[in-house]
């Protein structure tokens, strides 16, 4: 493993630098976006090499998958007008600013990394893992020890969806014309698999890498695929309108769990003794559903509405 591992790391690092360079410097925007998506996928490999399988799952599903879908769909909207004839980069003026500013930032980051407590919190987390209700340290940190972070994070995601929806209505048609007749059939065939994988990841989160974030991202990606395959998003239609509350389900459940602790005499976000395991599973299911629907909501780029929507294909 020794030499082969070092060679693999070196090649991976070179490929990542090349892709990052292409993503930020390629003259063609489509080229840049595709480079960025491949960059995300290779980063997932790097996370695995760094023994961070949770991050690898999240990066592949959210960093490359969901962000890639968002970027490509935005590119489609921008396609008629690209900066081909414009200057791509500020030629000289920015150098005087970005070198000192960048140096200061990098220096500050290095200093902060240097000052961090050296052995980390691994020991402490392992010591209290038994009390947390789950067997996987990262899940224990996310939904028990630092559950406040997760609460705020879902809040940020909800805020992003609200901001995008408040910018106006979703464009119509929601998706470009049918690119291939195979897509609807493939989408219907694959969607149950997406649901199954999401459920598996969610269940796995309690004892191994997985959990609400990758599960939600996979389910959201399945929903986006169905949308591209011509399905009518049910979140849009007026009869299912009330179901939009699922968007805020994760935030509401986490808030409820936090406040219940305070009200019943425990600390903020302290779970009742012995009930931590089931509570975390419940919170994960709620958060996973919300994350899936929120990622889908981000992809719609506007508030979905009944009017002004043309049926695509048939």
């Amino acid at each position: 493993m020794g030499v082969a591992g070092v060679i693999f790391d070196g090649l991976l690092a070179l490929a990542l630098v090349w892709l990052a360079w292409q993503a930020t410097r390629a003259a063609d925007l489509f080229h840049a976006v595709v480079s960025f998506i491949v960059f995300g996928l290779l980063m997932a490999l790097a996370w695995v090499r760094l023994e961070a399988p949770d991050i690898a799952l999240a990066e592949a599903a959210i960093g490359a998958g969901a962000t890639g879908a968002l970027l490509l769909s935005a590119l489609d909207r921008l396609a008629t007008r690209d900066g081909y004839h414009r200057v791509l980069y500020e030629p000289t003026t920015a150098w005087g600013f970005w070198i000192p500013a960048g140096g200061a930032l990098l220096g500050g980051l290095t200093l902060a990394a240097w000052k961090l407590p050296a052995p980390g919190l691994g020991e402490e987390v392992l010591a209290s893992l038994k009390l947390s209700g789950v067997d996987h340290p990262v899940t224990a940190v996310l939904l028990n020890f630092r559950a406040l972070d997760t609460l705020l994070e879902i809040g940020v995601l909800l805020l992003a969806a609200v901001t995008i929806w408040s910018l106006g209505r979703a464009p119509s048609p929601l998706v470009p014309a049918m690119p291939s007749p195979a897509l609807p059939a493939l989408g219907r065939l694959l969607f149950p698999v997406f649901v199954l994988v999401a459920a598996y990841l969610l269940w796995r989160g309690s004892h191994a890498p997985g959990g609400a974030f990758p599960a939600g991202a996979v389910l959201g990606a399945g929903a986006i695929l169905m949308l591209l395959a011509g399905a009518r998003p049910w979140i849009r239609s007026s009869e299912h309108g009330p179901w939009r509350w699922i968007l805020s389900l994760g935030l509401a459940m986490l808030l409820a769990a936090a406040v219940t602790g305070s009200l019943s005499g425990l600390a903020f976000f302290e779970y009742p003794r012995g009930a931590a395991g089931p509570m975390i599973l419940l919170l994960e299911v709620a958060a996973g559903l919300s994350i899936a629907l929120l990622l889908f909501a981000l992809y719609l780029r506007g508030e979905p509405c009944e009017h002004g929507y043309r049926e695509v294909g048939s």
Binding site: G120, V138, L295
Partner: peptide, 22 residues
């Protein structure tokens, strides 16, 4: 041993990044 706290923070960061990007 391996420190899981930065892993959790990075997971949070990835979701915040996708929100910002969107």
């Amino acid at each position: 041993p391996l420190d899981p706290v930065p892993h959790a923070i990075v997971l949070t960061g990835i979701v915040v990044t996708v929100s910002t990007t969107a």
